[in-house]
Design a protein around this nucleic acid. Structure first.
Lengths: 151, 151
DNA sequence: ACAAATGATACTATGATAGTATCATTAAAA
DNA sequence: TTTTAATGATACTATCATAGTATCATTTGT
């Protein structure tokens, strides 16, 4: 019963990471050093994000990836849509077989409502809201301390 | 991204079914006729429910299963606990690596909160609330109409 | 030319979920 | 007392989404 898969998880981390860099573009090699993500997997994920228009990519030496959108305009639900087939918590498990005296069974109604609520809440979490100072750039102090603190 | 697995789903249906019968005990053979669940799978599920103290079982000819508890005291979260290892929607995916300037990252806080809310809501759905008249017994009219209506 | 990057794409591995199979035991009924 | 219809226990197999790997082609700065 997981809400977020690795794909989505890693994508979030990578986007946060890129958002926090000052460079024009960030190569995979650099991300792999800081984020604990297998290189080929991360590569695939970034390619997907690039294909989906969330990242701009630059080939060749000195190339890498940069955000196509402002960190405040990238939401977790966007990533879930890309990496997790269905955002469907239920699929009318009773298929009209149960709850004979109701137009729509309580189960389905509740599940639909829960799902709607979960998605609404996830849709409010942006990349910007996940990084420290919220402006998408990492402060010098943060950069100097290296990696991400254990706090 | 499923909240409810087949195990849980089938268990719910079976419990609803049993709750709606007037007999003292309901054999698998009978359930299989009405519910669209593979017999050996349903058997396994019922055995589990029996082992967990949610069903009483009677062996031998004329045997079967009956509810150990009132339908109003059996909740979906009970079944999820039995059949779905973790009721955990997230597992602190950032593992303290992100959100350097916060004691607890927004992501984790939000996910925990969402999870709590989902579970609270699921914990309110009882077997009784899923069956038509709520008293755990099927009316004669309902029984006569056979199966479960498409309404 | 070389090195360092992404693009495209096919492949493998793992694990949870889903489902099957079989033999043993019980108990009512013929 | 034998048969039959039920559950108990338990081991096995199948499927599928998730997770991850591998490789060759292309681009581009030095």
């Amino acid at each position: 019963m997981k809400l977020i898969t690795r794909n989505t998880d890693y994508a979030m981390r990578a986007l946060c990471y890129i958002a926090q860099q000052t460079k024009d573009s960030v190569p995979v090699t650099e991300m792999v050093k800081d984020l604990a993500i297998p290189r080929p997997f991360l590569r695939k994920i970034l390619q997907t994000l690039s294909g989906e228009g969330m990242l701009d990519s630059y080939r060749g030496q000195g190339g890498g990836f940069s955000l196509s959108l402002s960190p405040s305009k990238i939401f977790i639900t966007d990533l879930i849509k890309i990496f997790q087939n269905a955002i469907q918590l239920n699929e009318c498990i009773f298929k009209k077989k149960m709850c004979p005296n109701r137009k729509t069974c309580l189960m389905k109604r509740e599940m639909d409502s829960i799902e709607k609520d979960v998605l609404l809440r996830l849709s409010r979490i942006s990349i910007a809201s996940l990084i420290s100072n919220g402006n998408g750039k990492r402060s010098n102090r943060e950069r100097k301390e290296g990696r991400y603190g254990e706090a």
